[in-house]
């Protein structure tokens, strides 16, 4: 079976007046199988949006090839477009003077849906996005989060097999963001393939089957969020709160304990070299009457900081 998205050797340079061409993508290779939710992570200016735009046929790659469900996005753009749903983040990109329903009808028609099918699809999407109550109001008066949902509905209007979501949750309130996560899970259950960019590590960890880190136009790493922690540390770790000092001292002396430290949040963190040591540590802590204890792995955020570095506000390029 062909992959949902196949990216090979993709580069993209931008022509900037009075300067040498700027390489925003420097040779990306990435294959995403059907049904996968894939998150694209990376700092501002890394090239995530550029890649999304190439995938959605809006921008041509300078070199390399991209196929979407077997259709090459340059040669076969018309076919590729039909199986792609595209959502660019932010609240622009809607006809503000049209109602939500009219906006969806507009795109549904352009994607070739006939009247009956269109009505069914638009009603279903308005319902799914919680917009049915305000479907006939002008989009102009919508809040940012509502526009965002309408964008998602718009992206789904042609019932695409592949969805490209560029920062789909910017500006959503926590409830809307949680609804969005549920929606992504539903879409995944439908068998759709989703490529999304996000700056929210928790969201990426929770939703995606695999994550890719992109930095300065290069793909740094592609991994599953559950095993990606291994690249920061192969050690196991136990976190606990309220551990008395004498217990701490005892933990430090246990065999197989590599480090005992306190995190910024005041949590005692014990790192061990193997699971037998982890068992010993847990038993010691629990025996001392401490119940606020958990095993943890390096978070996606830690991996991100490790890979990208603590660059602060500086933008690469």
């Amino acid at each position: 079976m062909t992959a949902a998205i196949d990216i090979r050797g993709v580069t993209r340079s931008y022509v900037v007046k009075g300067k040498p061409d700027f390489m925003a993508l420097k040779g990306i290779d990435l294959t995403i199988p059907r049904g996968e939710v894939h998150a694209l992570l990376g700092p501002n200016g890394a090239g995530k949006t550029t890649l999304c735009r190439i995938l959605s046929t809006v921008l041509l790659p300078t070199s390399g090839t991209v196929t979407v469900l077997g259709h090459e996005v340059v040669r076969d753009a018309e076919k590729a477009k039909q199986c792609l749903g595209v959502v660019f983040g932010g609240d622009r990109g809607l006809y503000n003077r049209l109602s939500a329903r009219q906006n969806l009808n507009f795109w549904a028609s352009l994607y070739g849906l006939r009247r009956g099918e269109r009505r069914r699809r638009v009603d279903e999407l308005l319902d799914r996005m919680g917009l049915a109550q305000r479907a006939d109001e002008r989009v102009q008066g919508f809040s940012r989060g509502m526009k965002q949902r309408l964008h998602l509905a718009r992206g789904l209007v042609s019932d695409p097999g592949v969805l490209i979501l560029d920062e789909p949750t910017v500006g959503m309130d926590p409830v809307a963001a949680r609804d969005f996560r549920d929606l992504v899970r539903e879409l995944r259950a439908d068998g759709r393939t989703i490529l999304m960019t996000t700056h929210d590590m928790a969201e990426a960890a929770e939703l995606s089957d695999r994550v890719s880190f992109i930095d300065d136009g290069n793909l740094a790493l592609t991994e599953s969020p559950t095993t990606v922690g291994n690249i920061v540390s192969t050690r196991e770790r136990v976190d606990a709160r309220g551990v008395p000092q004498e217990v701490r001292d005892r933990l430090t002396g246990l065999a197989g304990v590599a480090a005992v430290s306190e995190t910024e949040a005041g949590v005692l963190r014990v790192e061990t070299e193997h699971s037998e040591a982890t068992r010993q540590v847990l038993m010691t802590i629990v025996a001392a009457g401490v119940t606020d204890v958990s095993r943890s792995r390096p978070s996606l955020e830690e991996v991100y900081l490790h890979l990208i570095g603590r660059r602060g506000m500086a933008v690469g390029g």
Partner: peptide
């Protein structure tokens, strides 16, 4: 200004017709 241009470009619309 609306930001719909890239979305049109991504869609199968016939530009001149639109």
């Amino acid at each position: 200004n609306l930001g719909t241009f890239p979305l049109l470009a991504a869609s199968p619309v016939v530009p001149g017709g639109y």
